[in-house]
């Protein structure tokens, strides 16, 4: 799937998004290196990921959890290997007290570990996750301390 085709297909889900941002990597060679950010609310994230993964057959790369002071963001990065484009779904979780979002592990088994990791380090809950046990923090790590949150100082 070439870049323009991807752009066309992406515009079909525009109603579910807040907006689409496009950027271009300056060092990238001709015809490659586009970055697309799809901003959405947390309720839409599963549907958009399903569209990208199943309908557009993009490759799941990884997810990033960000503590953005006023809200949490969960970014699911997908790659289109034919055009070199990286499409990122950026979902906002506005509820800081009880952050929760729908898990994409039932859709993409490869997301199991990263969602467990985000649960460990940021305290984001994942609905419908099959196995949300502790993964990367040690056995004695205190409950309720999430090292990647901004209020935690090293």
């Amino acid at each position: 799937m070439k870049q323009h085709e991807l752009d066309n297909r992406l515009s079909t889900i525009e109603d579910k998004l807040i907006r689409i941002e496009r950027r271009r990597a300056p060092s990238a060679a001709e015809g490659a290196g586009d970055r697309v950010y799809l901003l959405c609310e947390r309720e839409q994230v599963f549907e958009i990921c399903r569209f990208l993964f199943e309908d557009l057959a993009l490759r799941f790369v990884i997810s990033t959890g960000v503590d953005a002071e006023d809200c949490f963001e969960v970014l699911h990065h997908f790659a289109n290997d034919e055009s070199g484009c990286i499409a990122t779904v950026r979902a906002f979780i506005r509820d800081r007290e009880n952050p929760e979002i729908e898990s994409i592990t039932p859709l993409i088994p490869g997301a199991e570990w990263i969602e467990r990791e985000m649960h460990d380090v940021l305290g984001i809950g994942f609905k419908n996750h099959p196995n949300l046990r502790r993964l990367i923090l040690d056995d004695d790590w205190p409950e309720g301390v999430y090292p990647l949150r901004k209020e935690v100082q090293t």
Binding site: S27, A28, A29, A32, A79, G84, C85, I108, G110
Partner: peptide, 30 residues
């Protein structure tokens, strides 16, 4: 392989011919 989002030789050994060096060329690979 696609479901578990594998990359590198693990993916290429399963017939998923992806390689960042070709797909999104960086450095001097192109």
């Amino acid at each position: 392989g696609i479901k578990f989002a594998v990359t590198g030789p693990t993916a290429r050994g399963s017939g998923i011919a992806i390689d960042v060096r070709r797909d999104d060329p960086y450095a001097a690979y192109s």
